[in-house]
Computed example of a mutant assay.
Amino acid sequence: MPQIGRHLRELRRRRQLSSRELALRAGISHSTVSLIERDRMSPSVDTLGAVVDALGTTLVEFFSGLRSSYNYSPVYRPDDFVEIGNPDEISYRVIGFNQPARKMQVLMETYQPLADTGDIFSHDAQEAGLVLEGRIELTVGQQSWTLGPGDGYYFDSNLPHRFRNLDEGVARIISAITPPSY
């Protein structure tokens, strides 16, 4: 995260500490503090924890402050979507992947002809979606439904579920998962 160094330097300066004083309090070398503050080194969790503790805060508070100073655009063009699936079978393109403190995951899902998510699975979240194109078989628990363009769904992802494209053509869904867990 390129913002860690800048945020750390701001906290240190607010507390009117030199980098040497911070290093001494944290039990690390002055050069380590310097490298972290210049984003030349990614600290381990232990090292960052020691530095943050020496500044009189916690990792949770540190990252909360980091999120509030993070610059991002609220607009995403198709080239900005991050692919987390396999486009040859099922493409999951994430909208807003770099949003700080994301509380939901928004996906553009593309299922190739007859593609299937495989074995029924579950995860700790809730899901909702809208079929834009094609026919999808949605299985939740012991029940299955066929959904077409304009049909939607909303379910507790703790229930075992599965998606399958029933057609020889491409199927597309816009979905949201909260918290982001897929």
Results as ranks from 00 to 15, higher is better:
Ile4Lys: 01
Ser122Val: 06
Gln105Met: 15
Thr32Glu: 07
Thr117Tyr: 06
Gly96His: 08
Ser73Cys: 10
Asp116Val: 13
Val75Phe: 14
Phe97Leu: 07
Pro87Glu: 07
Ser68Lys: 13
Lys103Phe: 12
Ser64Met: 09
Arg38Trp: 06
Ile4His: 03
Asp79Gln: 14
Gly5Thr: 01
Pro78Gly: 10
Glu61Met: 10
Ser42His: 10
Glu89Gln: 13
Phe97Val: 08
Leu17Asp: 04
Gly27Arg: 10
Pro2Gly: 06
Ile4Asn: 02
Leu66Pro: 02
Gly56Leu: 10
Leu66Ile: 04
Asp46Ser: 15
Gly49Met: 04
Gly49Cys: 05
Asp46Gly: 12
Gly118Thr: 11
Glu21Asn: 06
Glu10Ile: 06
Ser34Arg: 06
Leu59His: 06
Arg14Met: 14
Ser69Gly: 13
Gly5Ser: 05
Gly49Ala: 10
Gln3Lys: 03
Ile4Gln: 02
Asn98Pro: 04
Ser91Leu: 05
Val45His: 08
Pro87Gly: 07
Ile120Ser: 15
Arg14Ile: 11
Leu24Arg: 05
Leu35Phe: 15
Lys103Cys: 13
Gln16Trp: 10
Val75Ser: 11
Asp46Leu: 13
Glu37His: 05
Asp116Leu: 12
Arg77Pro: 06
Ile28Phe: 04
Ser122Gly: 14
Ile84Phe: 07
Glu109Phe: 02
Asp46Met: 10
Gln105Glu: 15
Arg40Thr: 09
Ser68Glu: 15
Leu59Glu: 07
Gln112Glu: 15
Glu37Phe: 03
Met108Tyr: 07
Pro74Cys: 12
Phe81Cys: 03
Asn98Leu: 14
Ser64Tyr: 04
Ser44Lys: 08
Ser42Tyr: 09
Pro43His: 06
Gly49His: 04
Leu17Ala: 07
Leu11Ala: 03
Val82Pro: 05
Gly65Tyr: 02
Ala50Ile: 01
Leu24Tyr: 04
